[in-house]
Amino acid sequence: MRIGERLHQFFRSEKGVGLLLVSPTALYALLLLAVPLIAIFAISFLTQTGVRDFEPGLSLVNYREALTDPLYRQLMLRSLMVSGLVTLITVLLAFPIAYFVSFGVKPEHKSLWIFLITIPFWTSYLIRVFLWKVILGYNGVLNSGLQAVGLIDEPLTFILYNVNAVVITLAHAYAPFAILPIFVALEKIDRSLLEASRDLGESRTMTFLRVTLPLAAPGVVAAVLIVFIPTIGDYVTPRLVGGPGGLMIANMIQTQFLRLNNAPLGATLAVLAMLIVAVISILFLILGHRAAGGGKANGGRK
C-alpha cells in the first residue's frame, strides 16, 4: 500500500508528469533507433554460408576480414578523409557567413538572412546533386564558362566522377547545417564581454581569438558533428558524382546488403564505421568543452 501511495504521489508530482509525457516519445525512439542498432550489432557476429543460411553460433570472422582486407581499410580511410575535408571546408566557409549575419546585419533583417540561408532546403537533395553534375560535367557550366573567358583550352576532367566532386557537392549540401548552429552560438554571446575586451586594450583580432571564438566553440562543435556524422555515411552522392574513385564505405555497406547478400559483413562494416564516428565525435565534444571553458574563464577574468 505504501508503494502504491508513493507511486501515486510520484506520478502526480512535476517529475512524474514529465516522465509520463516523455515516455511515449522515448519508447518510440527506442523502437526506431535502439532496436535496429542492436539487430545490426547482433548480425555482425554471424557467419553467412549461403544466401539465407548462417552458421550456428557467434564469430569474429567478419571483423577480422573487415580489419585486414586492404579494400575495406582504403574505403574507410577515404570516407574519413572526405568527411573530414568536407567538414573543414564547410565550417570554415560557414563561420564568416554566420559571423556576418550575427554581428553585421541589423536585428530586424536577421530573419530575412536566415530565410535566404535555408532556401537550398526547398529543393530535393537528389536534384541538388544532379545540378552539380551539370555544373561540373565535361561540357558543364563550369568548363564552358572557363573556356569562354579563355582561362582553359580544354575541359577539366578532375572535377567530376572523383573525390573532388564528392567533396564539392557535400560541402554545398551541408553548408546550411553548419551556418545555423554557429549563428545561434554567436547570438548568445554577451556583447558587453567584447566591449570590455576592447576597453582593456585588446585589438579586434585578439578579441575575436580570445573571446568570440572560444564562446562560439559549442556552435562550431555542433556544426562539425552535424556535418561529419552524416557525410561519412552518405552513399547517394558518391554513387552519383564520385565514380569508381569516389566511392565510400557506405557504398560498400549497401553493396554487401543489397547486391552480395552478405548481411553479416555489411553489418560489421556499419558497426566499425559507427564506432569510429563515435570516437571522433567524443573527441570533438571534449575539445569543444575545453575551448568553451577557456572562453568563459577569459570572459570572467575580463
Rank of each mutant, 00 (worst) to 15 (best):
Gln74His: 15
Ala171Leu: 01
Leu215Phe: 10
Val17Phe: 01
Lys110Gly: 04
Glu5Ala: 11
Arg204Tyr: 12
Leu200Val: 00
Leu93Tyr: 01
Ala291Lys: 12
Thr90Cys: 02
Val82Gln: 03
Tyr28Asp: 03
Met252Phe: 12
Lys296Pro: 00
Phe45Lys: 02
Gly294Met: 04
Thr157Asp: 04
Thr268Leu: 03
Arg191Ile: 00
Ser79Gln: 01
Ser197Phe: 14
Arg6Cys: 00
Val86Met: 02
Leu272Gly: 06
Arg191Val: 10
Val61Tyr: 00
Ser23Trp: 07
Pro96Cys: 06
His172Ile: 00
Arg2Phe: 13
Thr123His: 13
Thr212Arg: 05
Gln9Cys: 11
Asp153Ser: 03
Ile97Arg: 10
Leu142His: 04
Met1Glu: 12
Leu160Cys: 04
Phe208Cys: 11
Val22Glu: 03
Ala98Asp: 06
Gly233Pro: 10
Phe100Met: 00
Ala94Met: 13
Arg204Thr: 01
Gly233Asn: 02
Gly4Met: 09
Phe257Cys: 00
Ile189Thr: 07
Gly4Tyr: 01
Leu209Thr: 01
Ala185Thr: 12
Ser281Glu: 13
Ile159Lys: 07
Leu209Ser: 00
Leu186Val: 13
Arg290Ile: 10
Arg210Asp: 07
Thr255Gln: 14
Arg210Leu: 10
Ile249Ser: 01
Gly84His: 02
Ile159Cys: 11
Val86Ala: 08
Gly16Gln: 04
Leu186Ser: 03
Phe54Lys: 01
Gly18Pro: 00
Ala42Thr: 08
Leu285Tyr: 00
Val134Ile: 11
Tyr125Asn: 10
Leu136Ala: 10
Gly150Met: 05
Met206His: 06
Asn162Ala: 02
Gln9His: 12
Ala217Cys: 12
Leu20Ala: 13
Val163His: 08
Glu14Asp: 13
Ala42Ile: 04
Val22Tyr: 14
Tyr99His: 14
Thr68Lys: 04
Gly233Cys: 09
Ala270Tyr: 06
Lys106Tyr: 11
Tyr125Asp: 06
Asn261Gln: 11
Leu131Phe: 13
Arg64Ile: 10
Ile179Leu: 07
Thr157Ile: 10
Thr207His: 14
Pro120Thr: 02
Glu5Met: 14
Ala297Gln: 14
Val82Leu: 02
Gly294Gln: 12
Gly233Ala: 10
Ile43Arg: 14
Lys302Trp: 08
Lys106Glu: 14
Arg64Pro: 04
Gly18Gln: 09
Phe100Ala: 13
Met248His: 10
His109Ser: 13
Val277Gly: 02
Ala222Val: 10
Phe177Lys: 05
Thr68Asp: 14
Leu146Ser: 05
Gly233His: 09
Leu240Val: 08
Phe11Tyr: 15
Lys133Asn: 12
Thr118Cys: 04
Ile38Thr: 12
Asp190Asn: 15
Phe45Glu: 02
Thr123Asp: 13
Ile280Glu: 01
Gly243Pro: 04
Leu20His: 07
Asp199Phe: 08
Arg12Glu: 05
Arg301Glu: 02
Arg191Leu: 10
Leu225His: 11
Val221Lys: 01
Gly4His: 06
Gly201Leu: 03
Leu275Ile: 15
Val167Met: 06
Gly201Asp: 07
Lys296His: 12
His172Asp: 11
Ser83Ile: 07
Ala267His: 06
Leu186Tyr: 03
Phe130Met: 11
Gly245Met: 00
Phe257Tyr: 05
Ser124Trp: 02
Phe54Met: 06
Val241Trp: 04
Ala278Arg: 00
Val101Ser: 06
Val134Thr: 08
Pro36Ile: 01
Leu92Ser: 14
